[in-house]
Computed example of a mutant assay.
Amino acid sequence: NLSVLEAFQDLKDKLHLPFFMEIIILGSWAIWISRNNKIFEHINPSFQGWKHIFLEELKLLKFRMKNKLLPQYSVWLDSIL
């Protein structure tokens, strides 16, 4: 069994991206928004709903990304869209 820290480290090693933590944070944020949508908007959560929120947040992150990371981030983002 992997601990949570080991799982994060494994994912970090596989992604090998300097903006790894931003991806994790935005994935968690998308879960939180999905939860709030269930509670306050009565929208049932789904993987597709989470994915839509996650991708929209990733697109917005592009505007906050450091200039030196922007080319790599743009290539990565385009590869998952």
Rank of each mutant, 00 (worst) to 15 (best):
L2Y: 10
S3V: 02
S3F: 04
L5G: 08
E6T: 00
A7Q: 06
A7Y: 03
Q9L: 05
Q9Y: 00
D10A: 13
D10Q: 10
L11M: 12
L11P: 01
L11K: 03
D13P: 00
H16I: 01
F20T: 00
F20D: 02
M21S: 11
I23G: 01
I24P: 01
I24L: 05
I24Y: 00
I25P: 07
I25R: 04
L26K: 05
L26M: 11
L26H: 12
L26T: 03
L26C: 05
G27F: 02
G27I: 04
G27E: 09
W29R: 03
W29Y: 13
I31R: 04
I31N: 08
W32Q: 08
I33E: 10
N36M: 13
N37C: 07
K38W: 11
I39D: 05
I39Q: 09
I39R: 08
F40I: 05
F40D: 07
E41L: 12
E41V: 10
H42C: 11
I43M: 08
N44V: 11
P45I: 06
P45H: 06
S46W: 12
S46N: 10
F47G: 00
F47E: 06
Q48E: 15
G49V: 05
H52G: 09
H52D: 13
I53P: 00
F54A: 02
F54R: 01
F54W: 08
F54Q: 02
E57Q: 13
E57W: 03
E57H: 10
L58G: 01
L58P: 02
L58W: 06
L58N: 01
K59C: 04
K59S: 10
L60C: 13
L60P: 01
L61F: 15
L61H: 11
K62P: 03
F63Q: 13
M65D: 08
M65F: 06
K66C: 05
K66I: 07
N67C: 06
N67E: 15
N67G: 11
K68C: 09
K68V: 13
K68T: 13
K68I: 13
L69T: 09
P71V: 11
Q72D: 14
Y73F: 15
Y73E: 09
S74C: 12
V75A: 12
V75K: 14
V75I: 14
W76D: 02
L77H: 11
D78G: 02
I80P: 00
I80N: 05
